[in-house]
């Protein structure tokens, strides 16, 4: 088990290398020089060359990459052009906020998804199944930014129960686990949870139906297990796949929450990416994407290792 985890960890290295190359090249593929955004339009060629030398853009690409990678490995992601603050500071604060939002959304989605999935799978083709299946299809098909706006209209504008934007009182971007902050979390987290809820519900429904149709369920009944005893076996058989889907969903939410974070002005990575793109803040963009991509790689690793621990058939496969 430990050996497998280590082996799997080594497989991460080439992927991480690929990710870093793509992130680095991003700046150089995009049209326009990163400096054009900060320099005045009428800057002299001399000044431009001087600035290029300062930022290291005058050296050949492979050299620039090695220098950049060296800095990244020591935790230096560069300086944001727009704010002048270290990219690492900006990104890590945003990552923290996004992590809170995504994790809470995934947990809500996982519990509701499993609930709907098990009900639908156990009572196939009943009214309960149709209700649960409809909810899960709605969950994956309704555009979540639209749902977010509807939630804001109902709960913030009409009922005035919950704040519509920000992560804390007075637009603070520092998170704390108190009611003033949690109030801000509810609407975006619930809106975001609809996606994993739908995906997990549909996966679990199919899983449960498939497991229940297998011979060993009959054999478990034949050896005297009660419905509750059999349910535990069903859960244990469904868990590896359900958890894998949950992990992947968390990964998607970590990187793909630009729309929801923008709707709710949640100061996370999506919001940061959005700002970086519109301000042409390339170091910030580069750093954010790199951190998000690495997150995804590590999350996949975690899911893989967890699945192996839960399902004995995978390791040998």
């Amino acid at each position: 088990m430990l050996f497998y985890a280590l082996k799997r960890l080594i497989y991460v290295l080439p992927v991480a290398f690929g990710v870093s190359v793509v992130c680095f090249l991003l700046v150089h593929i995009t049209p326009g020089d990163p400096l054009t955004a900060v320099l005045p339009v009428d800057a002299s060629a001399e000044l431009q060359a001087q600035m290029r030398a300062i930022y290291g853009f005058d050296k050949p690409l492979p050299v620039q990459y090695v220098i950049w990678l060296g800095k990244v490995l020591t935790g230096d992601l560069g300086t944001s052009i727009a704010t002048g603050r270290a990219v690492l500071t900006e990104v890590s604060r945003a990552v923290g906020n996004t992590l809170i939002l995504s994790a809470v959304a995934t947990i809500i989605g996982f519990f509701l998804g499993c609930l709907f999935g098990f009900v639908a799978g156990y009572y196939r083709d009943s009214a309960m199944d149709r209700l649960a299946s409809t909810l899960s299809v709605l969950g994956v098909s309704v555009p979540h930014y639209w749902l977010g706006m509807v939630m804001v209209i109902i709960f913030s504008v009409q009922l005035n129960w919950l704040p519509a934007t920000g992560a804390g009182p007075g637009g603070s971007a520092e998170w704390a686990w108190d009611w003033d902050h949690i109030r801000h979390l509810i609407l975006p987290a619930v809106t975001m949870s609809v996606i994993p809820m739908g995906v997990i519900a549909r996966t679990v429904r199919a899983l449960v139906a498939e497991i229940l149709s297998q011979d060993f369920i009959l054999a478990l009944a034949a050896k005297g297990l009660t419905d509750r005893g059999i349910f535990i076996h069903v859960v244990k058989n469904a868990a590896p796949t359900a958890l894998a889907v949950m992990g992947l969903q968390l990964g998607y939410l970590l990187g793909g929450s630009i729309l929801i974070e923008t709707v709710f002005s949640w100061p996370g990575t999506g919001f940061l990416l959005n700002a970086a793109i519109f301000q042409r803040d390339l170091p910030l963009l580069q750093g954010t994407i790199l951190v998000l991509a690495m997150f995804f790689v590590l999350l996949n690793l975690l899911v893989d290792v967890m699945q192996t621990a839960l399902d004995p058939r995978i390791q040998r496969g």
């Binding site: 011979d215 060993f216 009959l218 054999a219 034949a222 050896k223 005297g224 058989n237 004995p312 058939r313």
Partner: peptide, 21 residues
């Protein structure tokens, strides 16, 4: 009653045993 008084063995043991236990 099942498994205590009367028990059963099945045709395909690979399918009749729970794969994750």
């Amino acid at each position: 009653f099942r498994g205590k008084t009367v028990s059963m063995i099945f045709q395909e043991p690979l399918l009749a045993l729970d794969p994750v236990y």
